[in-house]
Each structure stands twice: as structure tokens, then as C-alpha cells.
């Protein structure tokens, strides 16, 4: 079943069109990779799906589980099951990770009409999840991402993914700023969370991340459009021949 349907999406940022009619369908349980050179519109797509302000959709639509995603506020999208793992997760001094996680999880549950977690129940849950991802407890006491290494920030994103249990995870340049060990740890976390109901969209510039997270479908983006889609072998092909061949096609 189609989870995410992006249809002929056109997006502007300050008078400049970045996406020129992008179409993409992601089904439940699938792993999609979106690859492309810098400036091809990959991050714009992820931001528009998550609802970041500053982007103007001039044409097309995005359906999530059949509903109009663009009509929803970012927090409503999160409650419906959209999760964007940020390329550069922000630091929020003065807000402990634990307090942030509980507030966010309960806000999502409240929006869905579910009961909010009590403090003891929440603590139990967050301990289970962080243990399964090998995240030390003292990281949860610190301010959100404050003083975290690049790897710790990405693990914190994976922890949130595990806790909020979204049905669509978009990983925006997850490999940026990570050494190979940190990348493997983060990728292992992502793989552990993949399920027949949960789809992943992996946005990346480089093929190396796809050695760890193996996609079902690879899309090549260039100049604001998907210019080619194929199986995982397409990523290897790109690695060998580069993006230049697509730049003319777009």
C-alpha cells in the first residue's frame, strides 16, 4: 500500500523554484534511497515533507496514508507518523533530553487521542529503547544534543525514531559528519527499526551509506526532479560513473 505519494511537486524558496515537478511513491515497509548531487533538491524535499517554514509549494501534492500532508502543521505530521532525522540536529541548551523526549512523545500521543505516558511508564520505556540501541543513560540527562559528538547526535535521532515509532522515516544526509564507526552504529540502529510497516527514505550524496542500509529502490535526483529510478545496483552504477550523466538529462 502506498504510504507516501509525492505528485508533480513544485516548490519555491524566495522566488526561486527548487523542485520542478517531482513525483515519488513509497510503499509500506520499503527502503528508498534518494541520491543526487549537491543542489539537486534532496534536502528541500525532506524539509517540505516535514513542514519546515520558508518553502512555498506552487503545484502538486503530497499524500501520506491518503491524507493531504501539506495541509497539516509539522507537529500534526509527526503525530501521523512522519519522522525526519535531521542532517544537523540542533542543540537545545536547558532542555534535558529526557524532558524533551517525554514532552514530544506525549504530545504525539495526545494528538492521536492516546493516553499520555506517566513518568514511571515513560522512564521504563525510554530505558528499554536506549538499552537496545546501546545509548548510555547519562546522555539522556544532558541538554538535547548539547556537547554531543556528531555520532551521538545521530544516535539521538535514531533513539527518537525508536521511541516515537513513526511509519515513515526520512534520513537526511545521515552520513554527513560521521566517521565510519559512527556511521555503522547509526545504520545498525536504523536497520533494527526497519519493519514491514515502516518505510525509510535515505537521502544521501554518497553510495557508502547504502553499504549499511540496503535500499529496495534507488532514485536519482537532478535539478529538482527524479530523473532515474532503479534497484540497489543503480547506486553502484552511480558510484562508478558519477552524477554528470544525469545533469544533462534534467
Amino acid at each position: 500500500m502506498a504510504l507516501l505519494e509525492v505528485k508533480d511537486l513544485k516548490v519555491r524558496v524566495e522566488e526561486r523554484e527548487i523542485l520542478h515537478g517531482l513525483t515519488l511513491t513509497v510503499n509500506e515497509g520499503e527502503i528508498h534511497a534518494i541520491m543526487g548531487p549537491n543542489g539537486s533538491g534532496k534536502s528541500t524535499l525532506s524539509h517540505v515533507i516535514a513542514g519546515k517554514p520558508g518553502y512555498e509549494v506552487t503545484d502538486g501534492e503530497i499524500l501520506f496514508k491518503g491524507e493531504d500532508l501539506l495541509a497539516m502543521a509539522p507537529n500534526e505530521r509527526a503525530a501521523k507518523g512522519v519522522f525526519l532525522a535531521f542532517q544537523y540536529p540542533v542543540e537545545i541548551p536547558g532542555v534535558s533530553t529526557m524532558n524533551f523526549l517525554r514532552t514530544a512523545l506525549n504530545a504525539q500521543r495526545k494528538a492521536r487521542g492516546e493516553s499520555e505516558y506517566s513518568t514511571p511508564d515513560f522512564l521504563k520505556k525510554v530505558r528499554e529503547v536506549s538499552k537496545s540501541l546501546n545509548i548510555p543513560q547519562d546522555m539522556l540527562k544532558r541538554g538535547v544534543n548539547v556537547g554531543f559528538s556528531g555520532g551521538e547526535k545521530k544516535r539521538n535521532e535514531v533513539l527518537q525514531m525508536a521511541l516515537f515509532e513513526p511509519s515513515l522515516c526520512i534520513l537526511d544526509e545521515m552520513d554527513s559528519g560521521l566517521d565510519i564507526d559512527a556511521l555503522r552504529i547509526a545504520a545498525d540502529g536504523v536497520n533494527a527499526l526497519h519493519s514491514p510497516k515502516r518505510a525509510m527514505v535515505v537521502i544521501t550524496h554518497y553510495q557508502r551509506l547504502l553499504n549499511y542500509i540496503v535500499p529496495d529502490v534507488v532514485h536519482v535526483m537532478s535539478n529538482g526532479r527524479v530523473v532515474k529510478s532503479g534497484g540497489k545496483e543503480l547506486a553502484l552504477e552511480l558510484e562508478a560513473s558519477g552524477y554528470a550523466q544525469f545533469e544533462d538529462a534534467a
Binding site: P53, N75, F86, F100, A104, A107
Partner: peptide, 11 residues
Amino acid sequence: LLFYLKARGLP
């Protein structure tokens, strides 16, 4: 910071 929190479900 506001967008990060909203993207995590906070109104």
C-alpha cells in the same frame, strides 16, 4: 529550534 521541536510533535 522551534522547527525541530515541532517536527517532533510539539504544537
